[in-house]
Design a protein around this nucleic acid. Sequence first.
DNA 1: TGAAAATTTGATAACGTATTCATGGCAATG
DNA 2: CATTGCCATGAATACGTTATCAAATTTTCA
Lengths: 334, 334
Amino acid sequence: MAKQTITIYDVAREAGVSMATVSRVVNGNPNVKPVTRKKVNEVIERLDYHPNAVARGLASKRSTTIGVILPDITQMFFASLARGIDDIASMYKYNIILENSDEDVDKKVEVLENLQAKQVDGIIYMGNAVDDRLREAFKAARTPVVFAGSVDDKNTLPSVSIDNKAAVYEAVNKLIDNKNKKIAFISGPLSEPVNGKFRLEGYRLALSEAKVDYDENLVFETSNTYEDGVKLASEIASTTGVTAAFVANDSLAVGLLNGLQDLGVKVPEDFEIISSNNTSLTKMVRPQISSIGHPMYDTGAVAMRLLTKLMNKEEVEERNITLPFDMVFRQSTK
Amino acid sequence: MAKQTITIYDVAREAGVSMATVSRVVNGNPNVKPVTRKKVNEVIERLDYHPNAVARGLASKRSTTIGVILPDITQMFFASLARGIDDIASMYKYNIILENSDEDVDKKVEVLENLQAKQVDGIIYMGNAVDDRLREAFKAARTPVVFAGSVDDKNTLPSVSIDNKAAVYEAVNKLIDNKNKKIAFISGPLSEPVNGKFRLEGYRLALSEAKVDYDENLVFETSNTYEDGVKLASEIASTTGVTAAFVANDSLAVGLLNGLQDLGVKVPEDFEIISSNNTSLTKMVRPQISSIGHPMYDTGAVAMRLLTKLMNKEEVEERNITLPFDMVFRQSTK
DNA sequence: TGAAAATTTGATAACGTATTCATGGCAATG
DNA sequence: CATTGCCATGAATACGTTATCAAATTTTCA
């Protein structure tokens, strides 16, 4: 009963054909007479033959596996993207190798080499900071790479994301419309282009259009965690005149919200908040948080679809895809 | 400049040794003279040689890849487990292929076959319902399988989890101590052993020890979503006499909490809640929710460690590992 | 110093598939 | 009926490694 691995060769023998023919049947090659195809398929069924994907990969140089590099799968934003990726990937019969990078450059490069060794057919990269070393490694890679949820600010690589500048611009405009004079910008590391470049640009644009001077004391750089949001609350509360904030991450926003409320600040009466991403968190807290609706699942799905095209060497009309976002207003804004 | 793949053969030629020796160096085989090792390593460095993992897998029949099957990566519970798994996996140089099963039996079986074809060295299974067909497939698999976060109720497969019965027993005891007479049991599908068997047993044990009759009208079966928690609130509120609930999932508990509060029910004054898992959600809502502290990350990590042992055919003292849990009391209980 | 033992090394055969190229058969064509 | 051309098939090889076993080299020790 020792499960002897049965190979294409066994099938060939049983069916009285050559292994080449079996291979053709398995791969759906049309050049095989219906009769033989049927015969081979019966044997395959009877022997319960399953092609060995590793041998296949070696022979064909394609692994039907793609690599997904992300900072941390426990962050809802990335998990949602990953889910979108996986659904489309399995639709196209690809598997996903997941790698948590913790936004650590050395780890990213290591992980990338690892993925290459495993002969992945393509890579989806999520994360914000793109170090030059990594960018070079991506370019040198024999395999296509797609950015999901962020763009390479040098814009040299395919990507799928929303227009973060426009989104923040809208959000801040809303806060301006609500008569807020001093509006804080709160985000993770400004070294990450999505924060330090795109979002901040949207923020500044909205301010300047409203003839409000940009004040860098209103820009708060922190991490994306709930805890840091809570901590930040007292600092925000003691900054005179600030009555609203754009917060670049939902967890962070929830932390700030709770922290402020614990200090007796009333939201939205005394302070308005708009966050980014519109994860389920925004609906779970009270007051519910207004947020930029980021199509997370779709971003992953579209990125994966784009990757299939690139892997297939199809012509692609646009390598940098911008998905629409929407604004979801809830109780944290007036 | 066309990146010609360089093989072990190139290295051998350059270094003036046989490919066997190069292979030995690469794999850290001690039977190679330090001088040759040095020479080979220099060539490897110079040519920037990277072993092809696929060819390696074919020759050695080991892929240094493991499969992870889980219901849905966007659920925090599973994401946390996955993170623990991945960290230990990469510590042992394994990669992870992720598969979302959506708790669909057909999909699970398909996914399992897929993983086998890819020659994974081991599998970690998360999820609650274990269908007979799947169990048989697991047993027939040539590769070890470890359950993480749940146990096969037939107890035939290795697993890592907490003692859910004891945990719920403690939770319900707390509610009993707080003078609650009618305590609801709210969970996802009772067909899943973790709910219908272990947790329910803990609930019933606590009740019977307190000489409280078991009332099946107090057992609510739903899904694990926030939305269903909200919906359930009115039903709970209209069930006369119920003043507390054990809720098997944090999202569900948050939904219930918000739903009840929207109906004017005061928590914990009028109604007490203890949830399970103690994910970050429990701290983000107000009042914060008391919860069973489930060591999610550790469960994943330990499961992966156990799997490495099994893959390595090491002797394992205990195939069914029970991790300790703790009770975290917050404002949703008196 | 010489033989035996231990250590290093190399040649070669798997691993299980895809692919190329040659060939045989058969239908269509004149 | 002979010829052309196409379709279906098979033989052989490549993919890049690991693993086995024998050969070569070095070390040990009497």
